[in-house]
Design a binder for these strands. Structure first.
Length: 853
RNA sequence: GCGGGCGUGAUGGAAUGGUAGACAUACCAGACUUAAAAUCUGUUGGGGCCUAGCCCCGUGUGGGUUCGAGUCCCACCGCCCGCACCA
C-alpha cells in the first residue's frame, strides 16, 4: 500500500498543467467566455491566509467554469505602489522599487505551489512603466474630457516633520513619527469629477443584481442622495460681502425650531473673520488641530465660537439668532453652513446645552406631550407626529410629508428652493509622495498647467532618490522636476504629486484583457472579455475601491478606452470575510504598543505569555490579520507540512466564505487526514479485481448523483463549506459501500471531479490512477441524473401547536388529505389531542404537518 | 459619532419561514496493538422522570408578527468592517 504524498503529487501535476498550457486565456468565438478576478494583492512581502482564502475561492470558480465548458480568463497582478514601500525605504534604506519587485518575486514563488489556475502570461504590476504610462495617457485624455480639475483641499500636516501624513499615519491626532499634534492644512490638489456621476452611480446600483445587497446599500448611503431646502439667512453686523449666509437643510420642516446658525471653520466667512479677530483666529486654529477623517471630526468634542454676528429668521424677522463657528461642520457638504435645531438633532441638542441656546420643538409625539425635552426628539421620517410649530401642511403629518410641504411653502414664499444634494465628494487623487504614478503635467510660468505630450510618456519616476529627510523626494529632485514646457518649450517644472493608488486599482481589470498592448486597452479584447463575470475580494473594499472602479470604467468609456457594455465593470461581486487571529500585545518604550507573533507566545487557558521572559500579554481577540500587528499566520508552513490541497481544502471548509474566519491550527490536520482517506479509498478501488461484483451499487450511484447535485449547487452559490460537508458525507458512504468495482470506480472518479476545483492535484492523481482520460481539469463537469435524485418515500415530522411530536413515513406523492388522515391517526397525536378535535391541520407536502389545537 | 454587518453546543459552523445543532474539531468509550502512534467504530446541547420511552428548557437580551421564527419586524447589549491620504 502506498501513501498520500502531496509534495510529490503536487509538483507533478503543476508541471503537467504548465506543459499543456491549459490556463492560458485566448480569445475564441466558439466558446462562451468567463472572466474570474480576485482583488489583486499588495506586495507586502509574504502571502497570508487571507490571500490563500481569496485566491482559492476564485480558483474554485475558475476551475469549475472551465469544466463547464467556458473560455476562462483568470489573471493575477500586483497593486504595487503605496506607502509601505516608502516606509521600508525609510526604515531599512532599501529603494521602494527594489523592495517592491523583490516582494513580488517572493510572493509569486509562494503562490505558485498553491496550484492556482492562473494565466501568468498576463501578470501586471502597477508600479511598472508599462502599466502606469497608460494610466498617464488616460489621465491626459480625462483632463481633455473635463473629468479632472484642481482645487484646494485639506491634508494632515505634521508641523515638526513638515510633511503631509496619510490618515493611517495619524494616531490619536498626532504624527506617528514626530508625535506632534497634526494640523489640517489646505493644498491645491487634483480631483476626479466623480460627483457629476452621483445620480448615475446611484441609479445603476439597482441593476447590479449579482452584488450583495449590503454593498449596494453601503454605496447608496455613501453617495447619500438627499432632497432638502437651500436658502439664505440675512445677516446683521456681518462684514461686507456676507450680508447673506446660504444654508442647506434636509429638515426644512424644523425651521421654526432653529436657534442658531453654524458655519464651518473653513467657511469663507470664518476665514475672513479670522484675519482681523485674534480670538477667532485662535479658535479656528484650534479647530484645525487633529486629523482630517470624518471619524475624528464626528467623535471629537463639539466646539463652537459665537462670532457676534446675528441673522434674522426668514419667517419671523424679529427673531435673531447667533452665528457660531462650529468644528463639526464640514465645508465639503452642502454649503458649509447649517441652522441648528436642537430639539430634533442630538448633536445640535448637545451644542445648544453647552452654549445655553434655546431648544424649541417644532413637533411632538402627541398633543399633550411636554414641550421641554430631555434629549433630541428624532422619530423615523415615516412616523406621524404632532406639529406645534408647523408652517406648512397638516398638524399631524409624517416627517416625509412635512419636508415636502415645507419645501413647497418656502418656494412659494420666495424663501430658497428645493435642492437635491449628494454626500459623495469629488475624488482627490493627489498624493505628496514618491512611490506612485507621476501626474503627467507641467507647471509653466507662462502657460500655466500643461499636460505632458503623449509622445513623452511615460513620465518615469527618477531612481536616484533618498528617504533620509521626511517629505516627497520628487520635490527635492531639481533635475527631474525641470523640464521643457510641452506648450511653449521654455524651462518649466513638473508636477511632483503622484496619483492615489486607488487610481491604479480602478482599471487593472481592463488592462488584464490586453496586458501587453501599447494602448491602455484594445477594444476587441475589452469587448470580448469584459465585464468581469465574477469579482471576489474583501468586504473592506465595499465602498471606495468598488465605487472608484465604477466611476473609472465610465470615464474610460467616455475617453474611448472601454466599450459601453463595460461601464459596470463587475457583473457579479462576492465579498469574502477576513481571516482573523488574536493579537498579542505588550507595551514598550514611550508607551508604544509592541505586537508579538503567535510563534512567540505561550497560551495558557485564556491568558497569553511571552515565551521569552514570560511576561503576560494583552490579547485582542479576532482581529484582521495585519502585518503591522504581527498576527499573521504563514500559509507556507501549512503547505510544507501538509501540501497545497490541504491548505486549499481547509480555508474553504468550516466557515462560510462571506464570514470572517478565525484561524486555528487544529483544522489543517483534519483536512489532511480527510484527503489521505480519499486517496486511500481510490487506491483500494484500483486494487479490486476487474469485474468484481458487489451489493448496493444502485444505492451508491443514487447517492453519487445527489452529491453531484448538492456540490454543484454549493459551488454555484458560494456555499463552499456546505459543498465540502456533502463531500465528507459521500466519502463516508463510499468508504463503507460494498458495491461492485464498476460502481465504485465511477463513484470515486466522480468524487475526484467534484473535489477537483478545491483539491486539483489530488483529483488529477485519482483520475490518473483510475484510468481517466486526459487531465481532470479538462474533463466536463459531471451531470446529476434527475431521476436518481427523487426518493420514493419521505419522512414527515408532525407538529402539534408548532412542537414536534412524531413523524410518519409516506410515499413522496401522497396527497394532502391522505397525509392528514395518517397524521391524525398517529398514536402520539391521538394521545396529545386527548379526544379534542383539532382546530386546523396544516400539511406542507414533502415538508411538515402541523396540527393546531 | 455616522453607515453596514454579525451573534446558534466545549469549538468552527449547518438549517428556500417548516424535525435546531448537518459536516468537522475536541472530548469520552471501544476495536486493532506487547504498547503507543496511525487507522477504524460508536457516544456527546442542558435538565428532569414513572429511563425499550416520555416530558421540560434551549439559537446574545426583551418584545412583536405567524398554524409554525435561528430565519421576518421593533428596541437594547456585545463584537467586527468602513468613514474619502492603509490597501
Amino acid at each position: 500500500m502506498t501513501r498520500y504524498t502531496p509534495s510529490e503529487i503536487e509538483a507533478r501535476w503543476q508541471a503537467a498543467w504548465e506543459q499543456s498550457d491549459i490556463f492560458k486565456a485566448v480569445r475564441s468565438a466558439d466558446k462562451p467566455k468567463y472572466y474570474v478576478l480576485e482583488m489583486f494583492p499588495y506586495p507586502s512581502g509574504r502571502i497570508h491566509m487571507g490571500h490563500v482564502r481569496n485566491y482559492t475561492m476564485g480558483d474554485v470558480i475558475a476551475r469549475y467554469k472551465l469544466a463547464k465548458g467556458f473560455n476562462v480568463l483568470h489573471p493575477m497582478g500586483w497593486d504595487a505602489f503605496g506607502l509601505a514601500a516608502e516606509n521600508a525605504a525609510m526604515q531599512k534604506g532599501i529603494h521602494p522599487g527594489v523592495w517592491t519587485y523583490q516582494n513580488i518575486e517572493d510572493m509569486k514563488s509562494q503562490m505558485k505551489p498553491l496550484g492556482f489556475s492562473l494565466d501568468w502570461s498576463r501578470e501586471i504590476a502597477t508600479c511598472h512603466p508599462d502599466y502606469y504610462q497608460h494610466q498617464q495617457a488616460m489621465f491626459i485624455d480625462m483632463i481633455e474630457a473635463g473629468l479632472i480639475y484642481r482645487k484646494n483641499a485639506v491634508v494632515n500636516w505634521d508641523p515638526v516633520d513638515m510633511t503631509v501624513l496619510a490618515n493611517e499615519q495619524v494616531e490619536q491626532g498626532r504624527g506617528w513619527r514626530s508625535g506632534a499634534l497634526v494640523e489640517r492644512r489646505e493644498l491645491t490638489q487634483w480631483f476626479f469629477k466623480i460627483s457629476d456621476y452621483s445620480e448615475e452611480l446611484l441609479e445603476a446600483l439597482d441593476r447590479l443584481e449579482n452584488w450583495p445587497a449590503k454593498v449596494r446599500l453601503m454605496q447608496e448611503n455613501w453617495i447619500g442622495k438627499s432632497r432638502g431646502l437651500q436658502f439664505a439667512f440675512s445677516t446683521i453686523d456681518a462684514p461686507e460681502g456676507h450680508d447673506r449666509i446660504e444654508v442647506y437643510t434636509t429638515r426644512p420642516d424644523t425651521l421654526l425650531g432653529a436657534s442658531f446658525v453654524g458655519i464651518s471653520p473653513d467657511h469663507p466667512l470664518a476665514k475672513l473673520l479670522e484675519r482681523d479677530n485674534p480670538e477667532i483666529a485662535a479658535f479656528v486654529a484650534e479647530c484645525r488641530k487633529g486629523g482630517t477623517t470624518e471619524e475624528a471630526i464626528e467623535t471629537g468634542e463639539k466646539l463652537g465660537f459665537d462670532t457676534g454676528i446675528r441673522v434674522r429668521h426668514p419667517f419671523d424677522t424679529a427673531q435673531e439668532m447667533p452665528v457660531y463657528i462650529a468644528n463639526f461642520i464640514l465645508m465639503e457638504y452642502g454649503t458649509g453652513a447649517i441652522f441648528g435645531c436642537p430639539a430634533h438633532d442630538q448633536r445640535d441638542f448637545e451644542f445648544a446645552t453647552k452654549y445655553d441656546l434655546p431648544i424649541i420643538p417644532t413637533f411632538l409625539p402627541s398633543e399633550d406631550s411636554a414641550d421641554a425635552l430631555e434629549e433630541a426628539y428624532v422619530p423615523a421620517k415615516t412616523e406621524k407626529v404632532y406639529f406645534v410649530r408647523g408652517f406648512a401642511g397638516d398638524t399631524w403629518q409624517t416627517g416625509l410629508e412635512a419636508i415636502d410641504a415645507a419645501i413647497a411653502f418656502c418656494e412659494s414664499q420666495g424663501v430658497g428652493q428645493g435642492v437635491t444634494k449628494y454626500r459623495l465628494r469629488d475624488w482627490g487623487l493627489s498624493r505628496q509622495r514618491y512611490w506612485g504614478c507621476p501626474i503627467p503635467v507641467v507647471h509653466c510660468d507662462d502657460c500655466g498647467v500643461v499636460p505632458e505630450k503623449k509622445e513623452n510618456l511615460p513620465v518615469k519616476l527618477p531612481e536616484d532618490v533618498t528617504f533620509d529627510i521626511p517629505g516627497n523626494p520628487l520635490d527635492r529632485h531639481t533635475e527631474w522636476r525641470t523640464t521643457p514646457c510641452p506648450s511653449c518649450g521654455k524651462s518649466a517644472q513638473r508636477e511632483t504629486d503622484t496619483m492615489d493608488t486607488f487610481v491604479d486599482s480602478s482599471w487593472y481589470y481592463a488592462r488584464f484583457t490586453a496586458p501587453h498592448a501599447d494602448t491602455p486597452t484594445v477594444m476587441e479584447d475589452a469587448q470580448y472579455w469584459m465585464k468581469v463575470d465574477q469579482y471576489i475580494g474583501g468586504v473592506e473594499h465595499a465602498i471606495l475601491h468598488l465605487l472608484y472602479s465604477r466611476f473609472f470604467a465610465r470615464a474610460m468609456q467616455i475617453t474611448g478606452h472601454l466599450p459601453k457594455s463595460a461601464i459596470e465593470p463587475f457583473d457579479a461581486l462576492f465579498t469574502q470575510g477576513m481571516v482573523t487571529h488574536a493579537i498579542y500585545r505588550s507595551t514598550g518604550a514611550n508607551d508604544r504598543p509592541v505586537f508579538h507573533y503567535p510563534e512567540e507566545v505561550d497560551l495558557n487557558g485564556d491568558k497569553a505569555f511571552l515565551k521569552d521572559g514570560g511576561a503576560e500579554l494583552d490579547i485582542i481577540p479576532s482581529a484582521k490579520m495585519s502585518k503591522s500587528k504581527n498576527n499573521v499566520v504563514d500559509p507556507l508552513n501549512i503547505i510544507s507540512a501538509f501540501g497545497a490541497d490541504t491548505a486549499r481544502w481547509f480555508v474553504l471548509s468550516d466557515s462560510p466564505p462571506e464570514r470572517d474566519v478565525e484561524w486555528t491550527a487544529s483544522g489543517a490536520e483534519a483536512a489532511y487526514k480527510h484527503l489521505s482517506r480519499v486517496w486511500n479509498i481510490s487506491d483500494r478501488i484500483a486494487a479490486m479485481s476487474d469485474g468484481a461484483e458487489g451489493e448496493g451499487s444502485e444505492e451508491l450511484l443514487r447517492q453519487m448523483h445527489k452529491t453531484i447535485h448538492d456540490v454543484t449547487m454549493g459551488i454555484e452559490s458560494f456555499g463552499f463549506n456546505a459543498a465540502i460537508a456533502k463531500l465528507y458525507g459521500f466519502t463516508a458512504i463510499l468508504q463503507k459501500s460494498k458495491a461492485s468495482k464498476a460502481a465504485k470506480r465511477e463513484a470515486v472518479m466522480t468524487l475526484a471531479q467534484l473535489m477537483s476545483p478545491m483539491t486539483p492535484h489530488l483529483a488529477e492523481d485519482i483520475w490518473a490512477t483510475q484510468g481517466g482520460e486526459g487531465l481532470i481539469a479538462k474533463a466536463p463537469w459531471p451531470q446529476a441524473n434527475d431521476s436518481m435524485l427523487v426518493d420514493d418515500m419521505v419522512t414527515l415530522p408532525i407538529q402539534v401547536n408548532g412542537k414536534r411530536r412524531a413523524e410518519i413515513e409516506v410515499p413522496a406523492d401522497m396527497d394532502k388529505g391522505e397525509i392528514e388522515k395518517l397524521a391524525l391517526a398517529h398514536e402520539a397525536v391521538i394521545r396529545i389531542l386527548d379526544g379534542n378535535a383539532p382546530k386546523k391541520v396544516i400539511v406542507v407536502p414533502g415538508r411538515i404537518v402541523n396540527v393546531v389545537v
